[in-house]
Computed example of a mutant assay.
Amino acid sequence: MTETTGNPLDRLTGAGVAVWLDDLSRELLRRGDLAQLVADLDVVGVTTNPTIFASALAKGDAYDAQLSELASAGADVDAAVFAITTDDVREAADVLRPVYDATDTVDGRVSIEVDPRLAHDTRGTIDSAKALWAAVDRPNVFIKIPATLEGLPAITAVLGEGISVNVTLIFSLERYAAVMDAFLEGLEKARDNGYDLRTIGSVASFFVSRVDAAIDPRLDALGTPEAAALRGKAAIANARLAFGLYEEVVAGDRWQGVAEHGAHPQRPLWASTGVKDPAYRDTVYVEELVAEGTVNTMPSSTLHAFADHGVVRGDTVAGTQQESARVVADLAALGIDLDEVTRDLEVEGLQKFEKSWDDLLSTVSAGLAQVAR
């Protein structure tokens, strides 16, 4: 398929990919930048995580007034972080509400993550998700829950109570299959509990670039032509295989059992799509994962790069299952076990988010102390 004329993001949207922004800050909201991105660059959703909030709080003085109010009210650091992050997400949800209404609740969503320290605490995750859902109090919010083994029953329980969920930190095909099962079980519970399935949304955030960032150095260390030929192929192959699993699920009878009650599919969301190796094209993890019914959440740099020079060649996922499986087999022949790599990436991802959460707590604690003087 040849590329048509028009803005690259318009063409990406036309190919069935929802464009989301992986960033949020009070400055982005108050300056009107988020609204501008929705109007001009086809942005129809926002994702956040502890790293994004930690970065936002560490810059400028946009949060000083609220910190002063919180300090005067005697709020502790956990309460302050909760108030600040839910306020930002609520305001962003209001900006995206027209998109939510126009897309029949599918897009116009803003995600906020449970405390990452609860990743191995099922009950704590459920309670945190409920608290965040109630505090933001907007129908177009997603509660992000990590796809840990302990997170899976929390996903089911939360969906079963009518709460929309963004399942995050998915790296492996095995875990992704378990996530889709947890999603279906959650919708079945919600149906049986009397909830309107048309209002419950979910995406499954499958991480991309971190896979190449973990595997490419191993290939480089091997130093063979066979290894060099596989650089930059693992992440895209892994994601394409994940989409194949998704297609199997939505073609199945179990999905039809909830779809007939108005349920929306749990769309695959390509996360971590910023390029970490400057040798690669800066839009590669967008261009090579174009498939109708998916979401691509991009950091601001990737979003603007794609708007400038992104290429849409039509569907770049269909018909790639055999080729993708061969990449995984070729990696295994070189002694690189993709399952082992993705297990390590889950542990590392949680550690990074916990570190960012600690940074966020420290920044807010220092801010509270400063304004209290």
Rank of each mutant, 00 (worst) to 15 (best):
G232P: 07
T48W: 06
H120V: 06
G293T: 14
A62Y: 09
G274L: 08
L245S: 01
E226S: 08
D277R: 08
V99A: 00
E354V: 11
D22L: 06
Y285Q: 12
S356I: 00
M298S: 07
A39R: 15
V167G: 04
N238T: 05
A71F: 11
L197V: 03
S111D: 13
L241V: 08
T105F: 13
R254F: 14
V286Y: 02
A242Y: 06
F171W: 00
E346D: 00
L149I: 01
T316V: 08
I215E: 02
I236Q: 10
Q322A: 12
A131G: 11
V317E: 01
T103P: 06
D64T: 15
W270G: 04
A79C: 01
A92R: 07
Y100V: 00
D315T: 13
A333P: 01
D94I: 02
I126T: 11
L187A: 11
L21V: 00
E113Q: 15
D315C: 12
E188R: 07
Q66H: 13
E27Y: 08
V114D: 07
E346Q: 10
Y176F: 07
E292T: 13
E161W: 15
D88I: 06
G223Q: 04
S72V: 05
D22C: 09
L289E: 06
R109S: 13
T156G: 04
D192P: 05
D22M: 10
Y100K: 02
T86N: 11
E340L: 03
P116G: 10
T168Y: 09
Q322R: 12
